[in-house]
């Protein structure tokens, strides 16, 4: 555990809580891509199956349970409790175009050809592109609420901090996970355009187009 890893995890947690609270407080999920949230629930489910097979630390176990729980709570709020406010007409990204290729890639490029390891690899690849339906939705409607942009910013910061974490671990621990690093770089790059808009527009006018 290093400072980049810890702040990355906390930034990730902040993003998840911000989204959940926004939907709960406004009693609306307008502008939120339910498809991205389904993908994140799928990411956490397939990655954290090791909760059932191995214990790493209390921190690790608690965070995994919180992430999974919040992901399903968010999906529930969007598709059940506040379904009437869900903007399905603008959430038109075809997620099978992500899930199917990512599933194929996980079978072909992995550390070990075992069920848990393939599912872990699938979750890493899928996470790197899971935000695309949300970004697609924003590009389609041409706007996002400020709080939604804070959510996206925290998510992007989390992945960027993980990159620094991997650099740290490479130098000080000799740790090197090519699958996580390549997927992490791809994921961070996807946020770059958004980062630029966030810094130049959101802070200036509190709403961006």
């Amino acid at each position: 555990m290093n400072v980049f890893r810890l702040t990355g995890d906390l930034s990730h947690l902040a993003a998840i809580i911000i989204l959940l609270l926004k939907i709960w407080k406004t009693r609306s999920c307008a502008g939120i891509s339910g498809k991205s949230q389904i993908l994140f629930a799928l990411v956490f489910t397939t990655r954290y199956l090791d909760l059932l097979t191995s214990f790493i630390s209390l921190y690790n176990t608690c965070m995994k349970i919180i992430y999974v729980g919040c992901a399903y709570a968010t999906v529930y709020l969007i598709y059940a409790k506040f379904r009437a406010t869900y903007d399905g007409n603008h959430d038109t990204f075809r997620i099978e175009f992500l899930v199917v290729p990512v599933g194929g890639l996980a079978f072909l490029v992995n550390h070990d050809f075992s069920p848990l390891e393939i599912l872990w690899t699938f979750s890493i690849y899928l996470e790197s592109v899971a935000i695309l339906p949300q970004l697609f939705m924003i590009s389609k409607t041409g706007e996002a609420e400020t709080i939604t942009t804070h959510y996206l910013f925290c998510l992007g910061v989390y992945r960027a901090l993980y990159l620094f974490n991997w650099i740290w671990r490479f130098y000080f621990e000799g740790f090197f996970d090519m699958i996580a690093i390549v997927a992490g770089v791809v994921q961070t790059i996807l946020y770059c355009d958004f980062f630029y808009l966030y810094v130049t527009k959101v802070n200036a006018v509190q709403r961006f187009q």
Binding site: R47, I56, Y67, D112, L116, E117, F176
Partner: peptide, 10 residues
Amino acid sequence: GTLVEDHDEL
């Protein structure tokens, strides 16, 4: 390299 099924990161 990484140890399989020892993914400590979240």
